[in-house]
């Protein structure tokens, strides 16, 4: 990763063997003013968001918006096609039969909402089939990694090491973020 000055950024990655150490070290590092680049784990660790100080995701709102769009699309499409664009006498029923439009409206609401939330997830997390992004070694197996960013003014190597050792870091790696 390059900063705005196009300089390579430095990082320190600490590997832990369990989620508790990761969570503790992350919380501690954040509270002590370190810039947490990211945390990597094989499974979602409970309380990690809080440890990292992440705000609740707004994807929920996107899902709601998507659902609303689906509902509106469905209702408008059904009423417009059935009662206005080409109204046909079907089984003697009135042209506009809102009750009979409920199932499709529901399904489209769900579909739009679900797809929107997934698309937003992919977009925000940079997930796409062409991504060449790799995981840190062992992250998808049994390793828990805390990556601290050097760029912030608050980075102090000794303090960091101290936190790492307090939480039984298995190894600490320093390098450039590419």
């Amino acid at each position: 990763m390059r900063n705005t000055n196009n300089e390579l950024q430095r990082y320190t990655a600490a590997y832990f063997s369990n989620e508790d150490d990761l969570k503790g070290s992350t919380a501690e590092a954040r509270l002590r003013g370190f810039t947490i680049h990211d945390v990597f784990s094989p499974f979602p660790v409970h309380g990690m968001d809080e440890a990292m100080g992440l705000k609740p995701s707004r994807i929920t709102w996107a899902a709601f918006a998507g659902g609303l769009a689906g509902l509106v699309t469905a209702v408008v499409l059904q009423i417009w096609t059935s009662a206005y664009d080409w109204a046909l006498n079907i089984g003697g029923k009135p042209f506009n039969t809102p009750l009979l439009f409920v199932p499709v409206s529901f399904e489209l609401t769900v579909l739009f909402s679900g797809l929107t939330s997934v698309i937003v997830l992919f977009y925000l997390s940079g997930l796409n089939p062409f991504s060449k992004r790799k995981s840190l070694p062992g992250v998808n197996d049994d390793k828990f990694v805390l990556v601290l960013d050097h760029s912030g003014a608050s980075f102090r190597k000794e303090a960091a090491d101290e936190i790492f050792s307090k939480y039984n870091a298995e190894k600490v790696v320093e390098g450039d973020l590419v």
Partner: peptide, 20 residues
């Protein structure tokens, strides 16, 4: 030639409809 034709209601593609 039912006025309230049960066949018309269920056709998904509007292949059976009522004329004026």
């Amino acid at each position: 030639q039912c006025e309230n034709a049960s066949c018309e209601m269920v056709c998904p593609v509007l292949a059976t409809v009522h004329s004026s």
